[in-house]
Design a protein around this nucleic acid. Sequence first.
RNA 1: UGGGGCGUAGCCAAGUGGUAAGGCAGCGGGUUUUGAUCCCGCCAUCCGCAGGUUCGAAUCCUGCCGCCCCAGCCA
Length: 581
Amino acid sequence: MNHDNETSGAAEAPGRDFIRQIVADDLASRRHREIVTRFPPEPNGYLHIGHAKSICLNFGIAAETGGRCFLRLDDTNPLKEDQAYVDSIIDSVRWLGFDWADRLTHASDYFAQIHACALQLIEAGKAYVDSLSAEQIREYRGTLKAPGRESPHRSRSVAENLDLFARMRKGEFADGEHVLRAKIDMASPNINLRDPVLYRIRRAVHQRTGDAWCIYPMYDFAHTISDALEGISHSLCTLEFEDHRPLYEWLLAQLTLPARPRQIEFSRLNLAFTVTSKRKLAELITLGHVSGWDDPRMPTIAGMRRRGYPPAALRDFVQRTGVTKKEHLIQMSLLENCVREDLNVRAPRAMAVLNPLKVVLINWPEGRTEMLRGANHPDQPELGEREIPFGRELWIEQDDFAENPPKKFFRLQPGGEVRLRYGYIIKCVDVIKDAAGQLTEVHCTVDPETRSGLSGAERKVKGTIHWVSAVHALPAEVRLYDRLFSVPRPDAGGDDQDFKTFLNPASLQVLTGCQLEPALRTIAPGAVLQFERLGYFVADSVDHGAARPVYNRIVTLRDSWARLEEAAGAASAAIPTTSRA
RNA sequence: UGGGGCGUAGCCAAGUGGUAAGGCAGCGGGUUUUGAUCCCGCCAUCCGCAGGUUCGAAUCCUGCCGCCCCAGCCA
């Protein structure tokens, strides 16, 4: 059951957030006949859960209204960008379930038009070449509370500006020697309007245009023009660009362009116990805290994919968090709920013992194997059944046996009975220990009348546990993942507090002696399963193979017993537990 | 009084003057050969605070408080 190819359901019923209301109004009032949006990532890192929100919003609105959405790579800074990131972005958006048809574009596709826009601005006296250094420009810009000062080059003639800009483009100057600036208002309370830089000289080989250019447009300039050229009706971006909207509109007003998009801002998706800044994610990789952009603990789309999160769950999650202008911090439990909800319906069940404890059935004949049958899904008979071998020696979970059981423990215990899933009721009659006093195996008797299907199976016992026949078991490696950070806001300290000090040392636990039921022999990489009573797992897409099974834990099952134990432990020890959000 | 935003439950979020949707989390109960799933029930006299307008305010007005963003030749 490989869900990686699943691409349907990309148009789940959306809520009526404020952006969709605006869109609906614009359609109703005939302000627009067609809705056109775009998702414009910069190819300088992998996409993460925050991008997923923007992707779902932009592609979702286009799909819901019968409009179009562009996937546009905003590649205006060759120093930071790379084709490998472009590839990963394309891969992630497609995996999330969205389609851009022939609308895969790049800001660099428009370099010629953007350059022409610069000329138009210069000719209109609305832009000039400045020759101040970067430091001087910063000084002249003023501060948040004090107005800036005009550059001495601000009054250059159109002819001189044209000449200088042409020579910038021809490569006559060194990097940083000149820039092209918009001529707006150095005293504006909005710093973005204090003659923002439009073009800078950068002798760098661009991944798509090579060395065709040595001047590159800045974000505000390139982005506005790209939006207009593509006929974007609604340009959706995050809150930090609110202050840029006046510049966006100023440019649209000065330039001759085919469309006049409207920019609307929404708050970005923040997930508790994670960081999403590309710089920080890259740092985790560089320092070896994770194995790469697709490490299953990463909040990247690639990481969540390898972790086994279904794309439909991610879409559902994004939709449930809503779209507003309010800053927020979404709890991990919402994401986990979405993942479980999707997987519960689709994931075939199987039995796996992660921390094995040997059980010997002393009244079961040596060497006798019996084949039991188990449904692959409790509610979906169409998923079929499989045979499960049963024998004298079994593996059970160490946690499913307690020599001195706590209250309400209804798993295996001395003198107690428990049902083996799909099999028999057994009774613990003896406990075997080694010289050091360590428990080595548990001896039980089987009640032969209680096999599933027999009338004796009606007998009720408190607990049912999962198991695997020892001689038939498949050894496997299982990787248990937990949150990467131990605090809800690892980056709350800003630059004063290193977010890495909040790394969760137990975010990855590798178990090597796990035992799987033999029906799992043919599971393909990427397939998702529920290991009964434990959680949902995915066969690792890179390390798993028939010869060496490797599974990642996607998420545990909800576990009210664990909560009880935790509460009891916390009460008796009076130790403050890790904050849960 | 630099400018721009935002404040509804533990976390999200509807609500657009007529008397607080929904989801997650939590709590209680039922079903159950997964302590899962599923099902049922509970969970804001109150909408950052204080005044005001109104028959009536989360929604309108005034003032205040709190939080976020902006001084890259990054996006």
